[in-house]
Design a protein around this nucleic acid. Sequence first.
DNA 1: CTGAAAGCGCTTACAG
DNA 2: CTGAAAGCGCTTACAG
Lengths: 338, 338
Amino acid sequence: MDKKTPNIQDVARVAGVSSATVSRAISNPSMVSDATREAVFEAIAKTGYHINIMARNLRRQRTGAIVVLVPNLGNPFFSLILAGIEQVAAPAGFSVLIVDTRQPHADENQIFTYLHNTRADGLIILDGTLPQDLLERRAAVLPPVVFACEWIEGSDFSRVVIDNSAGAAIAVRHLHELGHRHIGHVMGPMANVLTKTRLHGTRAALEELGLPFVPEWFLTGDFSLQSGAEAARRWLALEKRPTGVFCASDQMACGFISELSKVGFSVPRDVSVVGFDDIEIGRHFIPALTTIHQPRRKIGAKAAAMLIDRINGEGSVAVSEEKFAVRLVMRQSAAPPL
Amino acid sequence: MDKKTPNIQDVARVAGVSSATVSRAISNPSMVSDATREAVFEAIAKTGYHINIMARNLRRQRTGAIVVLVPNLGNPFFSLILAGIEQVAAPAGFSVLIVDTRQPHADENQIFTYLHNTRADGLIILDGTLPQDLLERRAAVLPPVVFACEWIEGSDFSRVVIDNSAGAAIAVRHLHELGHRHIGHVMGPMANVLTKTRLHGTRAALEELGLPFVPEWFLTGDFSLQSGAEAARRWLALEKRPTGVFCASDQMACGFISELSKVGFSVPRDVSVVGFDDIEIGRHFIPALTTIHQPRRKIGAKAAAMLIDRINGEGSVAVSEEKFAVRLVMRQSAAPPL
DNA sequence: CTGAAAGCGCTTACAG
DNA sequence: CTGAAAGCGCTTACAG
């Protein structure tokens, strides 16, 4: 009863054909006669055979795996992106393999060694802070790469992104339409592309609307709840405070509002806040968050689809960019100034 | 310049040794003389060799992969669990492969087919709703399994869990200590073990404290924000309302509080709420959530460690259970009744 | 439509 | 300490 897992030879023996025929019946049924096919499938059922994917992959010189490089698995922002990736990859026959690039054990060399060893068929990178030179130097030995959400400026990898600049501008214009003339911005970390593009959109909108750019009103965070709370403390310490604040992430917006509430400030009564991302909690926050929606699941799904096309040699080889539109979701955290 | 990726033979040729020796120098350096080892590593550097992991795994009859079955990748609750798993698995040389068991493409047969084909070395299951009979029927052909967070009642797989019953009891006792004598409970879905154990702890505490169990005050949800909001509507419709409510997840607690705020009810003024999980947003919610903390990252890390021990034949073969303690985190959402 | 044979890139007893 | 050889379980030209 404790026999080894059956292999293709066992099936062949039971079916009375060669292992080549079994292989064909499995992966290319139309190459085989009806009778043979039936016999093979019967033998598969009888033996309880399951293909050994490693052997197939070794032979076919592919891995059937996509590696996703996540900057911080603990950050729930990425969960829906991962869900989108999985949703497309799994039915297409690809395993999804995740690597947290910010783990202590994961210095760059280890990540690349891992990638080389693993020989993934493709790579989805959600971390725009990987060193460009390293990536480009290895481009020749890396499988196809698609960036999603983040990317590396000046390097040409395909990517699936949103219009961050437009999103920021929409947020600022919304505050302006509500009547705000003094607008500040809680930013992500300066090294992040998203920070730069959203900052760019913010400043462009300010200029377009004839509003002043006041450097003291631009506070640096890191997209986290904590950093939003810290920004609130700096906002409180300001001599003259903006009446409208655009936060570059919903998490920072929540942290910001929460911290203000501790000292009796209320949103949107004392200051209007617009977030970015449209994470689920936003709708249930108090006040419900006005924010810029980005389609996280779709971004993941599109990145996976794009990558798989490339792996299968379908999509063009040229570097391409898919840019999703964003939209304003009006809720309660932004209102006309008193 | 477009040569194939170098293999172990290429290295052997350059180093002037046999491929067997190269293999030994890589995986068991002490079996090889100093001089040889150096020559081999030089040749590896010169050729840019990276091991082909599929070939190794095929030969060694292992996969180097752990599969994690996640009930819903889109639910941020799981992100920290995954981070904990990755944190332990990656340094130990295991790839982490994720599968979303609630995707439309993922019916049970497909999941098991995938598991068979993939031949993972081990399995971490975060979904307690997989059919027990199916699992047990396949136990013989499945790799080692560790459940985390959830589990299947009456089946004996190893697991890493928290003391759900004690957690619920702590929540109820806290409400009681604050002075609440009318206590309700927003539950998860009835099919979920967590729902049953937390319900059990809740009722046990009620009894212990001599408080009444009022069935109308026990509202069913599904752990989500939305379902918390729905529970709030049912709570509002109650003839006589409990003054303290224990929600079986922080997400439901947030949804509950948020929905109440829409009709002018304030927490903890009009009702006290205690959550469960201690997700990050809780600390920044308004009011900050009083809740039961569970160590999600540790749970993931422990599950991975336990599984890897078993894979490596270290830990005992016996089924084991690791149960983490939980603790009350007092914040603002629960207070004495008016 | 089918089979015999070679080979994907490793590892590991076995022999020396 | 090292090498020759077999073999992990598939797939795929090649030949018929």
